[in-house]
């Protein structure tokens, strides 16, 4: 399978510049803050949000010097949310590296996250188009509400598919949708185009999160950077769990999961879930979202960004980690 980076190689020079911008933009007047920020940046990541911003920008008048602010801002917003998520989850490792909260404590992590979020808004202030700010602000608020919803839904096994979909929309799809749309908005693309890019990103994001939730069951600890089934052990009811609960006996066992469930009990439960058709059905739903994304793409003008978006969508549906 084609490597993700090869799908948008024409953006390589700009993505390298984005990487340098990320490093330069995060510099602070405090050595420890700099150390922590660099620690975060070096942990890497796919930088998928900046990629979507730059690709969205190709549907309008692409001006790197303008669009870079949005690309960097979105990556910073993502990074800030990860730092705070690690406090929420009390996570010790992320992408195999020690988390900020583990290394320097909760309070420090809160300050780093707040600093990075503020930096992202400072960068966004370079964008004069009010619509760009409205889109991003609405997205941020919805993402936060989604995270609160995720906490309120923990260990709630009576939730339905609709509730799950609403949650992953807010958790993942909205920021990817906004990334695609914002690139186009800032590049001055017409509404008919940037709205479609929003929906493309939305469907890709939904598919991406469903795949993520499947991988949490079928991935290895090495691939995932955390034990398989972590979502369920933390009380997060994901799509494979909802489908597995359609089997009555399994439903009863799943409903017993709580904070005291041991690792070996969980391991056994995960195996039982994997033996049902829950994974397959989850893949099918993920695929349906992917098809919706590809269908939207058909109505967008063909250019090299179009090809890249097509390949990325395909990749996301088939990724293994």
């Amino acid at each position: 399978m084609m490597k993700l980076k090869a799908m948008y190689s024409f953006l390589n020079a700009d993505l390298n510049k984005i990487e340098r911008e990320l490093e330069a933009s995060i510099q602070a007047d405090d050595p420890l803050l700099n150390q922590a920020s660099l620690h975060l940046l070096q942990a890497g990541g796919k930088r998928i949000r900046p990629v979507f911003v730059l690709l969205g920008g190709q549907f309008g008048t692409y001006d790197f010097e303008c669009i870079k602010h949005v690309a960097v801002a979105l990556e910073f917003i993502h990074m800030a949310s990860l730092v705070h998520d690690d406090v929420i989850d009390n996570a010790k490792l992320r992408r195999g590296k020690e988390t900020i909260q583990s290394k320097w404590g909760n309070r420090f992590a809160m300050y780093v996250g707040d600093y990075i979020f503020a930096r992202s808004l400072e960068l966004m202030a370079n964008i004069k188009n009010p619509l760009a700010h409205q889109i991003l602000a609405d997205t941020i608020v919805e993402v936060c509400r989604g995270e609160i919803e995720q906490i309120s839904d923990k260990y709630r096994f009576d939730q339905n598919l609709r509730r799950y979909l609403q949650r992953i929309k807010r958790k993942t799809a909205l920021l990817i949708a906004a990334s695609c749309q914002l690139g186009a908005v800032v590049a001055g693309a017409p509404e008919s185009i940037h709205r479609k890019l929003y929906w493309f990103g939305y469907y890709v994001g939904m598919s991406f999160q469903i795949t993520d939730d499947i991988l949490d069951f079928i991935g290895t600890e090495k691939e995932l950077g955390k034990p398989a089934g972590s979502d369920l052990s933390q009380g997060n009811v994901t799509l494979p769990v909802l489908y597995a609960m359609e089997e009555e006996a399994l439903r009863q066992s799943i409903m017993q999961v709580n904070e005291a469930t041991t690792a070996s009990e969980m391991k056994e439960l995960i195996e039982r879930i994997k033996q049902t058709d829950a994974i397959e059905k989850s893949y099918e739903l993920g695929e349906r979202y992917l098809q919706k994304a590809l269908s939207i793409l058909q109505s967008l003008p063909r250019n090299r960004a179009w090809n890249a978006l097509y390949n990325i969508a395909k990749y996301i549906g088939k990724r293994k980690y």
């Binding site: 949310s81 909760n106 700010h133 991003l136 609405d138 608020v141 609160i148 906490i151």
Partner: peptide, 21 residues
């Protein structure tokens, strides 16, 4: 603790939303 993190994040989002609008 989780809610405290998320509440602060939500309030930050709200101020940006107000200014953006």
């Amino acid at each position: 603790r989780q809610l405290t993190v998320l509440a602060g994040d939500l309030y930050s989002g709200l101020y940006y939303q107000f200014l953006a609008n």
